[in-house]
C-alpha cells in the first residue's frame, strides 16, 4: 500500500461510489469544488474545512536571496503565497495509520 498518486479522476470515482451521482456529474462537481476553493484563496480569503485543513494567503515581504550557483545576491520580490495547515484530525489520522502499519498500538500516551 502507498506510493500511488491520485488525481481528480480518483476523487470523481469516490464521489460516484459514495454518493451515487453519474461518473460525468461526479467529475464536474469535483472540478467545481476545487475551483471554488481556488477562487476564494485568490480573493485573499482563508478557507477553513473543518476536520481537514485550512488554506490561508500570506503576504511575503521582499527579501534578498542568492543564486546558489553563482553566489550572486538577487532581490526576491514581495509575493502572496498560500499556506496549508492540516487539522489535528487529519494529522492524527495519518499518524495513527502509519503506526498501525508498523504494528504498533496507538493507545499509548502521547508524551510530546
Amino acid at each position: 500500500m502507498g506510493g500511488k498518486t491520485l488525481t481528480r479522476a480518483d476523487l470523481a470515482e469516490a464521489v460516484y461510489r459514495k454518493v451515487g451521482l453519474s461518473r460525468s456529474e461526479s467529475a464536474v462537481l469535483v472540478e467545481m469544488i476545487i475551483d471554488e476553493i481556488c477562487e476564494a484563496v485568490v480573493r485573499g480569503e482563508s478557507v477553513k474545512l473543518s476536520s481537514f485543513a485550512t488554506f490561508q494567503v500570506r503576504d511575503k515581504a521582499e527579501r534578498i536571496g542568492r543564486n546558489p550557483k553563482t553566489g550572486e545576491e538577487v532581490p526576491i520580490s514581495p509575493r502572496r503565497v498560500m499556506t496549508f495547515k492540516a487539522s489535528n484530525v487529519l494529522k492524527q489520522k495519518i499518524a495513527d495509520a502509519h503506526l498501525d502499519r508498523l504494528g504498533n498500538s496507538h493507545d499509548q500516551p502521547d508524551d510530546e
Partner: peptide, 28 residues
C-alpha cells in the same frame, strides 16, 4: 447531497494520505 459530495472529496484525500499516497490536483 452537496454536503456528502464535499465530504466524499475531502475524506478521499485524507484516506489516501493515511494510506501513504499522494494526491495531485493540477492547477491547485
Amino acid at each position: 447531497d452537496v454536503e456528502n459530495i464535499v465530504n466524499a472529496v475531502l475524506d478521499e484525500i485524507s484516506d489516501s494520505l493515511a494510506e501513504g499516497n499522494r494526491v495531485e490536483l493540477r492547477g491547485f
